[in-house]
Amino acid sequence: MSLSSHVEELKKKHQTLSDSVESLQRSPATDDMEIARLKKQKLMLKEEIGRLSH
């Protein structure tokens, strides 16, 4: 897998996590721990994308 395709895959995962967080935040029975876990994963992906892109 090339670096650019790896970065694109990470961006897709980041977007999927963003969508999941958004959906959970709109749900009346939200689990704050789950949202926090997903946000942490999003941040780790964003940092890795930034590191690989520069």
Rank of each mutant, 00 (worst) to 15 (best):
M1Y: 11
M1E: 14
M1I: 11
S2T: 12
S2P: 15
S2C: 06
L3I: 06
L3V: 01
S4H: 04
S4P: 06
S5Y: 04
S5F: 05
S5C: 12
V7L: 06
V7G: 02
E9Y: 01
E9D: 14
E9G: 07
L10G: 03
L10R: 05
L10N: 01
K12P: 10
K12L: 14
K12G: 12
K12M: 13
K13Y: 12
K13W: 08
K13I: 04
H14C: 14
Q15G: 12
Q15H: 12
Q15M: 15
Q15C: 13
L17V: 12
L17T: 07
L17C: 08
S18L: 14
S18F: 11
S18W: 08
S18Q: 10
D19A: 13
D19K: 10
S20A: 08
V21G: 04
V21N: 05
E22T: 09
S23G: 11
S23E: 00
S23N: 08
S23V: 04
S23A: 08
S23L: 03
L24T: 02
L24I: 03
Q25V: 00
Q25L: 02
Q25Y: 02
Q25M: 00
R26N: 06
R26E: 03
S27H: 05
P28T: 03
P28Q: 03
P28C: 03
P28H: 04
A29E: 08
T30G: 00
T30V: 01
T30A: 00
D31C: 05
D31E: 13
D31I: 03
D31L: 07
D31A: 07
D32H: 09
D32M: 10
D32G: 04
M33H: 10
M33I: 05
E34H: 04
E34N: 05
E34K: 04
I35K: 02
A36Y: 08
A36T: 13
R37P: 09
R37F: 01
L38I: 07
L38M: 15
L38C: 07
L38A: 11
K39L: 02
K39P: 01
K39R: 12
K39C: 07
K40I: 09
Q41E: 10
K42E: 09
K42A: 07
K42R: 13
M44H: 14
M44C: 12
M44E: 14
K46V: 00
K46T: 05
K46E: 07
E47N: 09
E47L: 09
E48Y: 06
E48V: 10
I49A: 04
I49C: 06
I49H: 08
G50S: 15
R51K: 15
R51Q: 14
R51I: 09
R51S: 10
L52W: 07
S53N: 14
S53Q: 15
H54I: 14
H54Y: 13
H54A: 15
H54P: 12
